[in-house]
Amino acid sequence: MIELDTTDRRLLRELVQDATQPASTLGRKLGLSQPATWRRIRRLYDSGVIKGQRLDLDHDRLGFGVTVFLGVKLATKGRVSIDVFERAVSAIPEVQTVEHILGLFDYRLRIVARDISDFERVLRRRIMMLPGVGDVEANVMLSEERRPGPIG
């Protein structure tokens, strides 16, 4: 684990808010030179603290107005069925995330769809046809608040 000082934590908070900020802007906010800011950012990448940058798309504006969290319980368990399921479900474009979890279900999927009937099509024709799928439970997202998580 890497040691983070107060400046590193402030830098991470700034990057969480807007990762497109130039190093010169970040440096001014933190009281650092641009090269010093770049060195800190590079160190955070090299140590694995920063894993990458992601594009945050507005699914509503792209025509995907429904987000569903789907719990999936596999009918059969074993390394082969898990690998086959993960590979197959990851190939479905509407499936945004695949989380292997502990609890009532084996997986939690985040699925985007144009509307409820589009979700039903994805569920019936794609998800339920996957190898090993047993029980499922759908939860439709009503709203979402982004919380970046603790930085320490």
Rank of each mutant, 00 (worst) to 15 (best):
I111P: 00
L109W: 04
A23Y: 01
F119G: 05
V49L: 09
R147H: 11
R87A: 06
L4R: 03
G78S: 07
L74A: 09
G152T: 08
L109I: 04
R28W: 09
S90M: 08
V98N: 03
A91M: 13
P148R: 07
D5Y: 06
R146C: 06
D83H: 10
E120A: 14
R126K: 10
A138I: 05
H59D: 09
R10P: 07
E94S: 12
M141R: 14
K29I: 05
R114D: 05
V68S: 10
A75S: 13
I82G: 00
Q17N: 13
R39Y: 09
G52W: 07
D135K: 10
K29W: 06
G103V: 05
L55D: 13
V98A: 04
S81D: 11
V140H: 07
I127N: 01
R121S: 06
R40F: 02
V133T: 00
Q53T: 15
V80Q: 15
E86S: 12
P148I: 07
V84R: 14
I92R: 01
K77G: 11
S117P: 02
S47K: 07
G152P: 04
T25F: 04
L62V: 02
G132W: 01
R146G: 08
D135R: 12
F85D: 01
I127Q: 01
K77E: 13
F119S: 06
F105T: 00
Q21G: 03
R121D: 10
G149D: 12
D83W: 10
L15K: 04
R28E: 14
L15M: 15
V140Y: 11
S90K: 14
G31R: 04
T97S: 14
I116M: 15
D5K: 07
V136L: 03
A88L: 02
R126H: 09
V98D: 02
P148F: 12
S90C: 07
L62Y: 03
L102W: 15
M128G: 03
A36V: 10
Y107C: 02
P93E: 12
V140W: 09
R124Q: 15
D18G: 01
G152R: 11
R121N: 09
R54V: 15
I151S: 00
A36P: 01
G65D: 06
M141S: 13
A91W: 08
